[in-house]
Simulated scan of single mutants.
Amino acid sequence: MTSLLVVLVGLLGLVVGSFLNVVVWRVPRGESVVSPPSACPSCGHRIRPWDNVPVVSWLALRGRCRDCGTSISARYPLVESVTGALFALTAWWLGPVWALPAFLYLAAVSVALCLIDVDVHRLPDAIVLPSYVVGLVLLGLASWNPGGTSDWAALLRAAIGAAAMFAFYFVLVVIRPGGMGFGDVKLAGVLGLYLGWVGWSSLVVGWFAAFVLGGVFGSVLMLARRAGRKSAIPFGPWMLLGAAVGLVVGPQLAEAYLGLM
């Protein structure tokens, strides 16, 4: 049953990844993700349904537009593949539980926000702000757990985690303007919601893992002379990666740290 779920959710992830390609391109430009239909940016021909099958169509077309032959970036099938893999791993990690939709949504949003932040150094409100509502509703459903034992304490932890991380990042922005943006503050609240729902150790580890990972990356760039102390480096991807560390191995890392102490 779990194997079938992983396969089906992975296939769903491929489809979602195809949609995320549209989101990543259009949302930063203030365009609708619904209309007009996808078209080749070079010749303007609309993409046919059979040329829009995730990964498969790109391979069949050998990475080129059917109408004008213009090269299609390999980023498109890569985003689809990564999203499919993340969905499958999430289903394998959680199994058939009520929390699964909430974390699949987080996986999809993470892919979109990572790419947008790398591209334009911005975390759009159009994606981040609705994530509060969607995350709260889906995690509320998971806490209710119809047919099982409800866990409303998890939802309370989620609210505390969201408020705490939002406040912490807000203070950082106030005391050091330019160090990070308010997009990071808003994203911190969303991540705190999920980390808090999983547990206190996940919240703490995911909270600080972002600074550790981002700091290591920045140090490597400076040592390689690819960046300086004042270089603008998007922090959103490291927040999301740090949250992933907290969600997956937060309790184990916290236990190992306490054991060393």
Rank of each mutant, 00 (worst) to 15 (best):
V111K: 14
R226Q: 15
G218A: 14
L14D: 03
P101A: 14
F87Q: 04
S110R: 12
L191M: 13
V34D: 06
D119V: 00
D119R: 13
M261P: 06
V174P: 01
V111G: 12
L129Q: 10
V79K: 03
V55Q: 03
A60L: 15
R225F: 06
L203G: 04
V6P: 04
F19G: 01
I72W: 07
I72T: 05
A91P: 09
L156Q: 10
V212R: 08
W25I: 14
Y169F: 13
R229C: 00
S131G: 05
T90A: 05
Y132L: 04
D51L: 04
I72F: 04
L155C: 13
G178P: 11
P28T: 11
V82T: 08
S143E: 00
S110N: 10
Y105H: 15
L141N: 03
V33L: 12
G135R: 11
V245C: 06
P37V: 01
L20Y: 01
A108P: 01
E255P: 08
C68Q: 04
N145M: 07
L187N: 10
L100M: 12
L193Q: 00
M165V: 13
V134S: 06
V53E: 02
W238G: 03
V190D: 07
S3E: 15
A88D: 02
I233Q: 07
A164D: 08
A112W: 03
V109K: 09
S71R: 13
S35Q: 10
A85V: 14
R46Y: 08
G63E: 07
A244L: 15
A256W: 15
L187Q: 09
L193V: 02
L100V: 03
N52A: 03
L106Y: 01
L8H: 05
R64A: 05
C68A: 06
A112N: 12
M222W: 09
V120K: 15
G214D: 10
S3K: 07
R29H: 09
L78G: 06
P124N: 11
L61S: 09
R229I: 02
V27T: 15
G246L: 07
V111D: 12
L94V: 00
D125E: 15
R75P: 01
W93T: 09
G84R: 00
F211C: 11
L20C: 08
L258I: 11
G63C: 11
S202V: 08
G135P: 05
L136T: 15
C68I: 10
L193I: 03
G95E: 04
A163Y: 09
A243P: 00
D151W: 07
P77H: 10
D51C: 08
